[in-house]
C-alpha cells in the first residue's frame, strides 16, 4: 500500500534546468502583470492608456502648439511609436533595476538564478510594448500608412533595442544592490537621454539649425537607443522621411555607422558579465 501511495504522489518536477527557469520566468511575469494594476478600476487598460495620454499631451504641446512637426502626414503615428518605444525602455530599466532588491526576501530564502528576476521585469515591459504596438498599428491604418517590405526588419530592431535595454538594466540592478543612489541618477539620466533623442521633436528640426547645433544633431544618432528607435520608426512607418544612421551618414564614415551596434553589444555582454560576477553575493548584501 505504501508503494501505491508513493506512486500516486510521485509527480516529480521537470528536472531540466532551462525548463525550470522558463517556468519560474512565466510565473513571475504573470504575477507581476496581475499585481501591477491591482485594485485599480481600469486595470490592464492603463498599460495602453498611459502612452496614449502621453502621446496626446506631446502631440498637442509639441506638434500643434510649438509646431515641431516633421511635416509629414504620418507624424502623429511616428510620434506615438517613438513614445511607446521609449516607454518600453524606461519601464524595463525602472522596474528592472529595483527588481533584485524588491524580491530580496525570495532570493534570501530560495535558490534560483537571479537573472530571471531582471529578465521577468523586462519581459513585462515587452508585453506592454507589444500591446502598444497594436494600438500604433490601429493608428497607422487610420492614417493610411503605406507599409513597405522593411516591416520585416522591425522584429530585428526590437531585439536590438531589447538587448541594449537588458544590458543596461543588468548593470544598474547590480549597482542598485550596493548603492541605492543609482536609482536617482538614472531618473535624471533618463530625462537627459530622452531629450537628447528625436522622440518628441523630429530630428530634421535640429538639423535645420545653423552652426554647431546642426552638426551636433547628427551625433544624436550615435546613441544606440535613439538609433534603434529611429530604425523601428523608419522600417515600420516612414522609410522616406525618418533619419537613421544608415541614411544620414556617408558610407565613408562606416565606422561611425557601427557605433550603436557596438555599444549595444558592449552593454549587453558587460551587463551579463557584471551581473553574473556579483550574483552570488546578492543574498548576503541585502
Amino acid at each position: 500500500m505504501k508503494r501505491a501511495h508513493a506512486a500516486a504522489n510521485a509527480i516529480k518536477p521537470s528536472t531540466s534546468k532551462i525548463r525550470r527557469n522558463w517556468i519560474i520566468l512565466k510565473a513571475l511575469v504573470h504575477t507581476d502583470f496581475k499585481l501591477r494594476y491591482q485594485g485599480s478600476f481600469l486595470g490592464v487598460i492603463w498599460s495602453v492608456l498611459e502612452p496614449l495620454m502621453m502621446f496626446a499631451v506631446m502631440y498637442v504641446v509639441f506638434a500643434k502648439f510649438l509646431r515641431m512637426s516633421d511635416g509629414t502626414r504620418t507624424y502623429p503615428v511616428v510620434l506615438l511609436l517613438g513614445i511607446s518605444s521609449w516607454q518600453f525602455v524606461t519601464d524595463s530599466t525602472n522596474v528592472g533595476l529595483r527588481s533584485i532588491v524588491d524580491r530580496g526576501d525570495m532570493l534570501r530564502k530560495v535558490h534560483f538564478p537571479n537573472y530571471i528576476v531582471v529578465v521577468a521585469a523586462t519581459m513585462g515591459a515587452l508585453i506592454t510594448y507589444g500591446i502598444n504596438l497594436g494600438v500604433v498599428l490601429i493608428f497607422a491604418f487610420g492614417y493610411r500608412v503605406h507599409f513597405t517590405w522593411r516591416v520585416v526588419l522591425v522584429p530585428l530592431n526590437i531585439i536590438e533595442l531589447y538587448c541594449v535595454t537588458l544590458g543596461l538594466t543588468l548593470i544598474m540592478a547590480t549597482m542598485y544592490a550596493y548603492y541605492r543612489d543609482i536609482a536617482h541618477i538614472w531618473d535624471v539620466l533618463q530625462q537627459v537621454i530622452m531629450y537628447g533623442m528625436p522622440i518628441v521633436y523630429p530630428l530634421s528640426y535640429v538639423l535645420r539649425r545653423r552652426g554647431i547645433v546642426g552638426k551636433l544633431g547628427k551625433l544624436e544618432l550615435l546613441n544606440p537607443f535613439a538609433q534603434f528607435i529611429q530604425d523601428i520608426r523608419h522600417n515600420l512607418i516612414a522609410p522616406a522621411t525618418q533619419q537613421t544612421i544608415w541614411n544620414l551618414y556617408p558610407n565613408s564614415l562606416w565606422y561611425l555607422k557601427a557605433v550603436p551596434i557596438v555599444l549595444m553589444l558592449l552593454l549587453f555582454f558587460l551587463g551579463i558579465f557584471i551581473f553574473s560576477k556579483n550574483s552570488k553575493r546578492f543574498a548576503e548584501v541585502m
Binding site: 518536477p13 521537470s14 525550470r20 517556468i23 519560474i24 510565473a27 513571475l28 504575477t31 496581475k34 491591482q38
Partner: peptide, 19 residues
C-alpha cells in the same frame, strides 16, 4: 498577500519548478 490562495500555491509551485 495580494494574490489568492490558489494563485499563491501555483506561484510557489512554479518557484520550486513545477509547471
Amino acid at each position: 498577500p495580494e494574490l489568492t490562495g490558489r494563485e499563491n500555491v501555483y506561484l510557489n509551485g512554479a518557484m520550486l519548478g513545477f509547471s
